[in-house]
Every structure is written in C-alpha cells, then in structure tokens.
Simulated assay, not measured.
Amino acid sequence: MRRFSLWLRGKPTVADSMLAAILFTLEVFVFTASGDRSPWVQLVMGFLLCLPIVWRRKYPRAAAGAVLVMSITITFISYSIGDLDAEHPGLLALAVALYTLVAYVDRSTAAVYAVGLAVDSALSIWLLEQELVAAGLFSVLVFALSWITAEFLGARRAYDEEVAARLVVADYDRDRRAEDAVAAERTRIARELHDVVAHAVSVMIVQADGASYALKTNPDIAKQALTNIASTGREALAELRRTVSLLRTEPATDDMPQHGTAGLARVVDMMRSAGLPVELELTGELDDISPAVSLGVHRLVQESLTNVLRHAGERPRAKVRVRRRETDVLVEITDNGNSSGQFSLGSGNGLLGMRERVAVLHGTLEAGRQTDGSWRVTAKLPLELED
C-alpha cells in the first residue's frame, strides 16, 4: 500500500483521475438508486461537474473555475426544469477545488474563489428554496474544513520540501568535504614523497659525481662516496616505505620516523658526507614538541639543505638554526650564496612544498636573497596547532 502511495505521488494526474472517478461513482450510486425520472440528465451534469478535477493540479485555476461554473449551471437547470434533484454528491468537487487553490496557488486567489462559492450557495438556497440555516451552515463547514486542511497539509508539504532541500545541501557539503579531505591527503603524501625522493636523489647525485672525479686520483674518497650513496639509498627506501604505509588501512606505527634533534643531526651528517659543510645550532627543548611540528621542522631543514646542495654553486656552506621559543619554533637556514650568480630556483616545487607545509601548520615562511648575496629561509611554526 505504501508503495502504491509513493507511486501516486509521482503521477498527480492519475491520482486526480481516481478522485474524480470516486466522486462520479457517488453520483451514479445516488441517482440510480433514487428512482428519479431523469437520471441520465443528472448523471451527465454530475460527470461534467467531476471532470475538471482530473486537471486540478495541472491547471488549478481553470479547473476550479470550471467546477464553479458547472455548479451554477446545475442550479439554474434544476430551477428551470423543476423536477430534478439538485443534491449532487459531485458538488464536493467545489471543496476539492478550494483546497487546491489554497494549497497549490495562493490565498488571494482562494479568497476570490470563496466569494464565488458564497454566491453559488446563495443562488442555490434562493432558487431551489433550500433551508437557509442547514444548507448555509453545511456549506460553511465544508468549505472551512477544506481551507484549514489545505493550510495544514500545505505547511507540512513546505516543511518536507525544506527538509529535502537541506538534505541535498548537506549531502553536497559532505561530499565536498570528503573530496577536500582526499585532495589534502594526496597533497600531503605527495609532499612527503617529494621531500624524501628529492633529498635522497640530490645527495646521491652529488656523491656519484664526486666518486667519478676521485675514482682514479683518490680511490679511498671514491669508496667513501659509494658507501654514502648506498647508505642514503637505504635510508630513502626506508622513508618511502614509511610514507607508502600511510596509504594502507592500518599503517605500521612502529616504523614511523623519529625526528627531533636526533633526526636533524642525522640530516646534517648526511649532508656533510655529501660534501656540504653545515653548521647546526639547536636551542631549547625540541624533542617534546608535537609530532606534526617536529616533522615540519625536519622537512624544512632537509629540503632547504637539499636546495643548497643543488643550487648554491661551488664550495657551498650552510648554517641551520632551530630555536624553540615561548609560542613557536624558529627555523633559519642560510647558505653562503657564493656571490657567483649561479644560484637557481630550479622548478620551484621545493619552495612551494615548504610553503604548503608551513601553511598547514599555521606558520609563516620567508625565503629570499639577502643583501650580502646569501639565501635565507626563515619559518615560524606555532607550538599549538589551531583547530
């Protein structure tokens, strides 16, 4: 039954046709059982009275007007012939038409129609000599009930439509938030992969170049460079495994990288092994800050030193200062710049990745050439992340 009701909601003309058929069936039952001398005339008038109900929702004004005109016509025909019964059950179509105007059009149109109903009722009482109090009171009650029902059901329908609209908006917002979360996660993982791969590959390239130059003249240095390449490759592979594990349903938390002061010292040692003199200065307690901030500091230092190794020209040097302050962590990486004009920003993805990482941590980042020709990266990362 519920299925059938839901099916009818999507087919208003079918539902209205069924309502018109019910009203006409009442007409047939009354006039075939009453023994009236002219039942076919009555049935034709009843049919024309009920017929406009079929289109009451598709053309509400026209249907309501047709029902009212037919009702007035029945009154005049009954008055003219004199022996016809004017009590048509199909006259309930007037109440249905009033309900339709209130629910689907507007109150002003329904009020004008109610005036027409009052005129029709007055003509019927006057011309057919019906009892004033009984007929008038019955008409008022039926039409008032029709109006009140339309108001109630119209308000409920408007509420349902608003709820449906809100659900659509909520579904859209939920889908959009899910898409944003997926995009943010993909960006984060891409940034991690870039940091790991770019750093490791840069170090390995520098070491390989050094080994190729020293292979004939100084085999010991070449051997040390090859050892550093292997060590860097293994460490990069381990980092890649940790990063890829983030894509799994249950990441291996025991293998998560340890950063802090030990991680910074390891990065600096690796860069020194690659031939980049690095001075490291750590101030304050850096091992008890949040993992997100600690990872941010680690990646900033790693990416900045990798850029120095790539682009700072001949005999590069770098200085790393990490200072924990009262509300934030200050990270400064400065290279000598070499004043040779060989400094290059490359593709810019490294600096862009640093800016994205700092923005995620609600910090600030400044990067640029100083007046003495050096290049400085300065980042401030708040200790307490905002929600």
Rank of each mutant, 00 (worst) to 15 (best):
S245W: 05
I148M: 03
N336C: 05
A190D: 02
M70S: 04
A164T: 14
L26A: 02
L101P: 00
R357W: 06
T371A: 13
R272M: 04
R2Y: 15
R177V: 10
A236P: 04
T109Q: 05
T283E: 14
A178R: 15
A144N: 07
S304M: 03
V197G: 06
M271I: 05
H199L: 07
Y79T: 11
A222V: 07
G341Q: 03
A66H: 13
S121M: 08
R357S: 03
D171H: 00
Q207Y: 03
I81E: 06
A379G: 03
G10W: 03
V278G: 01
K216Q: 13
E384L: 01
F143L: 11
S146H: 00
D173S: 12
T306V: 03
L132S: 12
M354V: 01
L91D: 05
F4H: 10
V44R: 07
P277D: 01
R2G: 13
I74L: 08
G136Q: 06
H199Q: 12
E131H: 04
A33H: 15
A238V: 09
F76N: 11
G210H: 00
I205S: 01
V69S: 07
I22L: 15
L128M: 12
A144W: 10
M18F: 09
G363K: 01
R177Y: 12
S339Q: 12
L128H: 07
A236D: 05
L282V: 09
A225N: 08
R234C: 02
P316K: 05
L295Y: 00
E332D: 04
R186G: 08
T253R: 15
F143D: 06
A274F: 13
F24Y: 14
L264T: 02
T306A: 10
E235N: 11
R299C: 06
R234E: 15
S304N: 14
R156S: 13
V322R: 03
D106T: 07
V168N: 11
I189R: 08
T187S: 13
A265F: 08
I229V: 07
T261M: 15
L48C: 11
A184Q: 14
A262K: 11
R242E: 08
V14C: 09
P60A: 04
A95K: 01
W126H: 14
P251G: 09
S273M: 01
L137M: 13
V278C: 05
S374G: 02
R369C: 10
L330Q: 07
I77H: 04
D83K: 09
C50Q: 01
R355K: 13
R186I: 05
P251T: 04
M270R: 11
A184C: 09
R166L: 12
T109L: 00
R369N: 07
A66Q: 13
I189G: 01
V69Y: 02
G10L: 03
E162G: 10
S146T: 00
A95W: 03
R191C: 09
S108N: 14
G46K: 00
I148Q: 11
A367P: 02
G337S: 03
A170C: 08
L128C: 11
L226K: 01
V133A: 13
D209I: 09
R324F: 06
E314R: 06
R355G: 01
V30L: 06
Q224N: 08
M204W: 01
L153C: 08
F4K: 08
E303S: 14
R248S: 12
A181Y: 12
L345W: 13
